[in-house]
Amino acid sequence: MQEDKIDNRRNITIVEILDRVLTKGVVISGDVVISVADIDLVYLGIRLMLSSVETIEQLRLQKIKDINSDNSAVNSSD
């Protein structure tokens, strides 16, 4: 469990960090603070980012699949 100690080297996801720093701790005390509406927009942005990463990954896997099936078609016709 020692590797779970938080530091900047460990890959704690940004969602997990934002889950804390945007809505918890001492909130709404400054002259400038991030509003709840803006926080909602942040999560919308994160959602879009993660879904586009997933789409890219799916496209990448599909491409590998296509290449493999092309290769096996070439090999079987040899």
């Binding site: 945007l22 701790g25 709404i28 400054g30 002259d31 400038v32 603070v33 991030i34």
Partner: peptide
């Protein structure tokens, strides 16, 4: 420590 929300700013 008492942590503050990210982006808590005071002008003075």
């Amino acid at each position: 420590v008492i942590p503050f929300q990210f982006g808590t700013i005071y002008k003075s």
